[in-house]
Write a protein that binds this DNA or RNA. Structure first.
Length: 379
RNA sequence: GUGGGUAUGGCUUAGUAGGUUAAAGCGUCGGAUUGUGGUCCCGAAGAUCGUGGGUUCGAUUCCCACUACCCACC
């Protein structure tokens, strides 16, 4: 299921085997919450963007169009016309992001739909059932993502509940995978480590869930308010307790630099809205640092957004044109920027894999971890 | 040529019935964005209020002239 090829310090190079194909690790998942990449980018485009895995969301797809519809349409892969792996998030993040619209109970979470206020209940079983109907490659356990900082007492009791929910998720997923009508009976289930910024709670939790034998282990509840150094510290503390023979997934992270630092600490999988969201806001990631596409100094710049990039947007369009599209409010601006940023992230993972293959990751990290976080200097 | 109108940050305008740091939008620049309730959000810089004179304790505001532009008419 997961093959570890080689390591460099804590960093790992491996392959995750799935029914939808092998995935070289470390990798970055492209976020398509509602079965679509925001910015008018479709799965036709993703094939050109070196996307390895798409990530969709249980809560959002359950509301619209509804998991029954997706099931009827043959599952998420057919629905969005994507035959490579898909990971579905469980709805646990919406417990955090929609905190004003939900109530947590032992049995699960009562939401008021952010669309029309309609009440809906998602507990561990419901989340598994929805994800099973979606037929994703990897399902995530239903958890509570707690904001940072949060009181230690609350975090502790929340984590204990998340552990109880994990047991229910695992049992329900096993039941669903045994049913003949289930779309993907090889659906994998990943556990999620929580514990806020308290390393003791984090470690205790990881020790408990590693004994529960899930297909992969995620670290959740990071990059939700705490300083970056705290996130790195938590990873330093908790990753050593994750199983060596299972993939590790740092949820919702992050900047190119965060990803390099995550790999350095032994993480294999990432996802983040940052490449797409920032692109829509005209912030472009390049191999020479961050570029603000609307800056006036690009008004007559014939160079591509990233001079070291061969993505479809950089092969075809100048900074002057992209800037014009943004200033004119053309949707094409966001689309081309998203295409570039996703390609950049996916290429970043290619280069991280390549560096690990060559035993050159440390060198890679030393150069790019700081560089990619800075503003571009190529004038 | 005649009559009328307008001149306020890069742009489009508000405003002061004369009174301490002239307002807004856009633009510019910066920050933010991390398992997507974000065509968004926050901030900064930037104006001797067309030029010259006059009235006044005090003028961006009132008066005169000039200049530029706009409209109408010849």
């Amino acid at each position: 299921m997961f093959t570890l090829i080689k390591t460099e310090g804590a960093a790992r190079r491996g392959v995750l085997h799935t029914v939808h194909g092998d995935i070289q690790t470390p990798f970055f998942m492209n976020v398509a919450t509602a079965a679509a990449i925001k910015g008018a980018v479709s799965c036709m485009d993703l094939r050109e963007l070196k996307t390895r895995v798409a990530l969709c969301n249980t809560y959002h797809l359950h509301l619209r169009p509804g998991s029954e519809i997706v099931y009827k349409m043959g599952g998420l892969h057919k629905f969005m016309n994507w035959d490579k792996p898909i990971l579905t998030d469980s709805g646990g993040f919406q417990v955090f992001s929609l905190s004003k619209l939900r109530k947590i109970k032992e049995e699960g979470v009562y939401f008021a739909s952010h669309i029309d206020g309609k009440r809906l209940f998602i507990g561990p079983e419901e989340s598994m059932q929805i994800q099973s109907r979606l037929g994703s490659t990897i399902a995530m356990a239903f958890d509570e993502c707690v904001e940072n900082p949060a009181p230690e007492d609350y975090v502790r009791s929340s984590v204990e509940r998340t552990t109880r929910w994990l047991a229910r998720c695992k049992e329900e997923m096993a039941r669903l995978n045994s049913l003949p009508e289930t779309l993907n009976r090889d659906q994998l289930l990943f556990a999620i480590n929580q514990g806020g910024t308290y390393d003791k709670i984090r470690i205790e939790h990881m020790k408990i869930i590693r004994e529960m034998e899930l297909d992969g282990y995620a670290v959740g509840g990071l990059a939700v308010g705490e300083p970056t150094e705290v996130m790195y510290h938590i990873l330093d503390e908790v990753i050593p307790y994750a199983p060596v023979d299972k993939p590790r997934y740092l949820m919702g992270v992050g900047t190119p630099s965060n990803i390099i630092e995550g790999v350095y600490r032994g993480v294999d999988m990432f996802d983040c809205v940052m490449p797409s969201r920032n692109a829509r806001h005209a912030t472009i990631f390049t191999w020479r640092g961050i570029l603000h596409a609307t800056n006036e100094r690009y008004k007559d710049d014939p160079r591509p957004m990233d001079t070291e990039c061969d993505c479809p947007a950089c092969r075809n369009f100048s900074r002057a044109y992209i800037r014009h599209l943004f200033k004119a409010g053309e949707q094409l601006a966001g689309r081309l920027a998203v295409i570039h940023n996703l390609y950049f992230y996916n290429t970043l993972m290619d280069r991280i894999c390549e560096a690990l293959d060559n035993g050159a990751f440390t060198e890679f990290r030393n150069k790019y971890s700081p560089l990619l976080a800075e503003k571009i200097t190529d004038d």
